[in-house]
Design a protein around this nucleic acid. Sequence first.
DNA 1: ATGAAAGCGCTAACAC
DNA 2: GTGTTAGCGCTTTCAT
Lengths: 329, 329
Amino acid sequence: MTNIHHVAKEAGVSVATVSRVLNGQNSVTYKTKLKVEEAINKLNYEPSVLGRNLRNSESRILLILIPQISNPFYTEIIKGIEQTAISLHYNILLCETDSSPQRENIYFELVRNKMADGIISMDPAVNRETLLKLAEKHAIIQCSEYTPDSGIPYVTIDNEEAAYRAVNHLIQIGHRNIAMINSDETYLYAQQRRQGYQKALLKHDIPIRPEYVLHASELGFDNGQQAMKRILKLKDRPTAVFAVSDLLAIGALKEVNNQRLQVPEDMAIVGFDKIDFSNMTYPTLTTISQPMYKMGKIAASMLIDRIKGKQVESVILEHELVIRGSTAG
Amino acid sequence: MTNIHHVAKEAGVSVATVSRVLNGQNSVTYKTKLKVEEAINKLNYEPSVLGRNLRNSESRILLILIPQISNPFYTEIIKGIEQTAISLHYNILLCETDSSPQRENIYFELVRNKMADGIISMDPAVNRETLLKLAEKHAIIQCSEYTPDSGIPYVTIDNEEAAYRAVNHLIQIGHRNIAMINSDETYLYAQQRRQGYQKALLKHDIPIRPEYVLHASELGFDNGQQAMKRILKLKDRPTAVFAVSDLLAIGALKEVNNQRLQVPEDMAIVGFDKIDFSNMTYPTLTTISQPMYKMGKIAASMLIDRIKGKQVESVILEHELVIRGSTAG
DNA sequence: ATGAAAGCGCTAACAC
DNA sequence: GTGTTAGCGCTTTCAT
């Protein structure tokens, strides 16, 4: 490996001067600058990030914590993060927790020992205690899922309102027996969306039936499909379903199709997220649109601000109800 | 920041001893080891990866180069990579090129300046020259797409054979007017799959019609949908389509549905990859199953072997034709 | 404008 | 079994 000393020698200057040229400081004569650049080219020199990082005690790496990389909701956010990160000369370390605390700990370690400068956590199953502890000394932003009053800045949407709108839509088009496919209600977003669901029912004097609320252990197609199987067996069979994720909704839709029932006639379905897939199903999926890309961009710039010691405020972004085939006859 | 010197002082030993304890060397007395551990706990010490990396001149980071993170084909491979990487104490830096040479260069830089120990490239649009140059001095593995006879080890499937089987299946069930939705034929896999397509036709004395082969500029739903629009306007309208990606196939399927035509009666469709979503469409998609997860695991362990200086051999994995609703009446 | 030198935090060769 | 010390490659302070 050729290093800064070789270049200095070749150019007949000191390492300090080479470093100055490398970092674009203008306290260097044009002439010496030229000499240095010549030497750099001649020796094919590439400065080592390892040395620089140690010296600057930074890594310029952002750690992204997600539960499942296969959920397009997250990949779309990641795109946004990457866009911002790259433009500010940061890189992203992708960490899929699989909701395993062990994995999580491995990743937390990375920021503790300065392998990463900060964390964007999107994992609802994150160990809140550890995260809070970590947040005392390190830059952390929560994205989508968050911990209220924890002091950790977040970017998210108004989940309750979004769910309310979704269910309200179902009521408007005439449904009264409305089931919900929720995820684990230890997660805040699940609680909030359930609140929104209930609020919409109450507003229209529709009784709340606990048996109409099902829980999926994960956000996969299968889980949605299984949930729909159970829904179709309920007495007073619901005529509509609100699922808290498009993946769940798509799985549910599949099961309705499988049983030769019609969507939306026999069963209306609303999803959540507006992932690309949601427009490819038959019929297309009515869903709540989340601004994933924007979320990612904002989360990244918040984090980088945090890393630089700035104070940042949490952000709540807009959402939108997108009405498509699965509720519109 | 508390560092190794603080710990040494606190424990009343030298930094070398602390380092030994940190690295689990057993040349340390149980008693001193205890003292050191006590000091570590007391001071809440976390060794800095920055110092260690510089000293060992490694980063323990693997760079993953993909064109699009939103394609589930890649995310599934990434899962496999991550699984292996984590078990061998490596982390992955996710790099989405968007097929932009500029971005690519930024990422290549990372391995040049030792921010990453090696690369797994899955980008078919990769700048081959640069990659080859880089491979002279750095550990690189290609995954899925590769460069024959370049000396860069790869893991992939037999694309020609896979395409052959897909098209052969369509012929077996009675089709003779078979279109192909290919991607850019500057990519090797696209060439190989086209070869397989033609081989199957020739084998059954079906004339090859260039106008039956369409090209999608990217692998998104839209591109598939656009391609199908054009296919449906062809004279001697094809009765079947082979798409080189499930995303394309799903977009194509969508368009057939939109035009109120029946799949597979009016148009049979075969995809490629077997992403999860291919089982959620209506009807479900016949497709070539690629072992994505396994591919990722193998690519990662090949790369790590490479980093450690071992010689590795390229691998060609098995694929499988999965017959489902979009071809089975 | 440039150079000498200290030091970021760690590991390992060498000495005892 | 443990300590001393050089050095990984870089940036920056302090001289000049």
